[in-house]
């Protein structure tokens, strides 16, 4: 990844930083992605995967569930780039179909965790007292559960569907959001401008939304990005274990579950869906790490891969 063409850009404009204040948000974000090689690579990967997930299925000549019993276990070739599976179905079409499911589950789960966790953390910490204590203990209990274990148990209770996967995966991330917000609220609550707002008679909720939330948006953004990554993995693990989405719904985990049965006959069945999965996770991790380091001055460095 050293041959990044954007090296020249970031190298040529080392003086960009001081002029930040005059830039618009869009410019800042674009600038960040152009400047940080990790973010750049991650973004390109992500765009490719998103394109594959949402446009790809329309470009391939085969339906993902169309069998062709005369062409079982065909190795990758020009007509089937990723080969075919036990029923002679085109693996490329199936990996693409799996991509859109993966993104739907991951995005849904991460946003759901954000939408539950953030308000919960904000409200309880702002109220404080017993409510806060009880919530904190509940959050501790949730954190004590290994994330994947919790997701497994929940998905079994709710039955296999996209919506229950959202809840099952989101549940274990809720405390993380609540904590980010809580830390920030407790920190900001004492600040002068909040006290000032109190003084001029602003309501509690107004203070929360107008003054506190804007300050916690960046760490939330990091958390959401990293949650996309973990949600993609957890969904794949669940479906790999046969507990997530069941056939005929196509998911990467399900494809890998099937592939495991035919590892010797058709290794390509394992290689391609796994690679797609790994690249997707990688794209989110690269972006998330880059944003985090960018926001955290202690670990911020001259840019480039770490």
């Amino acid at each position: 990844m050293n041959t990044n063409p954007m090296d020249a850009v970031s190298g040529a404009e080392p003086t960009a930083a001081p002029t930040w204040r005059q830039e618009t948000l869009t410019q800042r974000v674009t600038g960040f992605f152009l400047r940080d090689r990790r973010a750049m690579v991650g973004m390109i990967l992500l765009v490719v995967m998103l394109f594959a997930a949402f446009v790809g299925p329309r470009l391939v000549p085969y339906e993902p569930d169309q069998p062709n019993v005369r062409n079982r276990f065909a190795a990758p070739s020009w007509s089937h780039w990723m080969g075919t599976d036990r029923s002679g179905r085109d693996l490329l079409s199936r990996v693409l179909a799996g991509a859109s499911i993966s993104f739907r589950v991951a995005i849904g789960a991460a946003l759901l965790a954000l939408l539950i966790g953030a308000p919960l953390g904000a409200v309880t910490s702002y109220i404080g007292g017993l409510v806060d204590d009880v919530t904190q203990r509940c959050m501790d209990a949730i954190i004590a559960f290994p994330a994947r274990l919790l997701a497994i148990v929940l998905v079994v209770l709710m039955g296999p569907s996209v919506v229950s996967l959202w809840f099952a995966i989101a549940f274990s991330s809720i405390p993380r959001y609540a904590r980010i917000i809580r830390g920030s609220v407790l920190d900001q609550k004492e600040r002068e401008y909040v006290e000032a707002a109190h003084a001029i008679g602003e309501g509690r909720l107004a203070i929360l939304f107008l003054y506190i939330l804007p300050n916690v948006l960046p760490p939330l953004a990091v958390q959401v990005t990293l949650d996309f990554a973990s949600a993609v993995t957890v969904e794949a693990s669940l479906s790999f274990l046969g507990l997530g989405l069941v056939p005929p719904t196509i998911s990467w985990g399900g494809l890998l579950n099937d592939a495991q049965q035919w590892l010797e006959e058709a290794p390509w069945l394992a290689i391609f869906p796994g690679a797609a999965l790994a690249l997707t996770v990688l794209s989110f991790v690269l972006i998330g790490d880059a944003i985090r380091d960018h926001l955290d001055p202690r670990t911020r460095r001259r840019g480039g891969m770490r």
Partner: peptide
């Protein structure tokens, strides 16, 4: 971080 254990295992 990116490569899931079960795929690597396979």
């Amino acid at each position: 971080v990116a490569v899931p254990g079960f795929w690597f295992g396979m």
